[in-house]
Simulated assay, not measured.
Amino acid sequence: MSSSSTDVPGPGPAGASNGPAVSRREFDALFESVRTWGRWVPADRGAWNRVTADRVRRAVAMVRSGTVVPMALPWNTRPGPDNHKPALHHMTDLGDVENPEPSAYKDFIAADYHGKAITHLDALCHIAYQGQLYDGRTAHEAVDAAGARFGAVSALGPLVTRGVLLDLPAVLGVGWLEPGQAVHAGAVLAAEKALGVTVGEGDAVLLRTGRVRRSQELGAWDSGAVSAGFHVDAVPVLAERGIALLGADGDNDVRPSPVDGVHSPVHALALAALGVPLLDNLDLEALSAATAEAGWYEFLFVVAPLNVPGGTGSPVSPVAVL
């Protein structure tokens, strides 16, 4: 459906489906079939171990135009239906004169960033399934009030690799995918063919659903309740390709969840089964325009999370270099 065919934010039409439904038993079988526990040392870097120095060199060599495209949303301090936990930003110094000069201006920022409004990275300790983190570590032993002793964001460090944009609205000729619309394995394969790109080992794969454009044109909605994103049946394709990172302009999961009793099944599969860190809430509109103009959908991708010992993730400002 094109962007002109609806005029209110919220759930899409009846044709925008998050299904088919997946039973808990089917999901558990899928989890077992894709998990990579015991594969890497160090385990708490998970799939980032795939990004070797040779892959970095090849990714850097892909740069053609030198165009740098940022992908972070603005720091969001305003409450809204898609921002239930606004970030903080206030000034702590307003030109107080030092002795001697100059005067100084300082500020403070903070965020409970695991929501729908801050561009952030999810580390492997962010999600447990059936009480277990990635690699079979027991969550209650690995994470406590002081932070995580396994799978923390401080174990990851910066990632420099090949990025691939799966621009589904561009493929379909629409402004955005409707909230609640699932992206299936077949859509991933069709996007590769249409965009002339193939997802490979060590890649950072970014899904554009058009969430940011829809929000700009129609207004914000509660994307935690209903949003476009991956169906669990797309995960085996991405797992077979050996990706290192998965990101989206939403939080990667289609919502409502199609899996009975599992509210974020793609999070569970990526983080807890595959050891693939996630990027949530990217702004992919500028990258969509830049890749369409360039005629290619692969690029050098760079993201550097904050070095927070024990942290479950980090606000980030990733960039693509075409």
Results as ranks from 00 to 15, higher is better:
234 A>H: 05
284 L>N: 02
52 T>I: 05
96 D>C: 10
171 V>W: 06
221 W>Q: 13
5 S>N: 07
267 H>P: 07
228 A>Y: 12
173 G>T: 14
117 A>T: 13
277 P>D: 00
227 S>F: 08
234 A>C: 02
279 L>G: 02
56 V>I: 12
102 P>F: 04
149 R>H: 01
88 L>W: 12
175 G>P: 15
91 M>V: 11
151 G>A: 03
286 A>D: 13
233 D>Q: 04
4 S>A: 13
11 P>D: 09
291 T>Y: 14
292 A>H: 12
44 D>G: 05
153 V>G: 03
307 N>C: 06
34 V>S: 10
211 R>N: 09
117 A>M: 15
252 N>R: 11
299 F>A: 08
27 F>E: 09
9 P>M: 14
310 G>H: 02
101 E>C: 11
105 Y>V: 13
60 V>T: 05
87 A>M: 12
208 R>I: 14
192 E>W: 00
168 L>N: 05
88 L>H: 04
133 L>M: 09
313 G>C: 08
83 N>G: 15
119 T>V: 06
73 L>Y: 06
219 G>R: 12
219 G>I: 14
223 S>Q: 10
153 V>C: 09
41 V>N: 01
39 R>S: 00
1 M>E: 09
242 G>N: 00
162 R>P: 07
244 A>P: 01
29 A>M: 14
195 L>V: 10
17 S>G: 00
70 P>H: 01
114 H>W: 10
207 L>E: 09
317 S>T: 11
276 V>K: 02
39 R>H: 04
170 A>N: 08
280 D>R: 13
283 D>K: 06
297 Y>P: 11
254 V>C: 05
77 T>V: 15
32 E>D: 15
183 V>T: 08
208 R>L: 13
304 A>W: 04
235 V>T: 04
266 V>Q: 00
110 A>N: 07
77 T>E: 06
219 G>D: 03
248 A>Y: 09
147 G>C: 02
194 A>F: 05
15 G>V: 13
145 A>D: 12
24 R>D: 01
30 L>W: 08
146 A>C: 08
227 S>M: 12
191 A>F: 09
212 V>C: 11
45 R>N: 03
223 S>T: 15
98 E>L: 15
29 A>L: 15
130 Q>G: 04
66 G>K: 11
51 V>P: 01
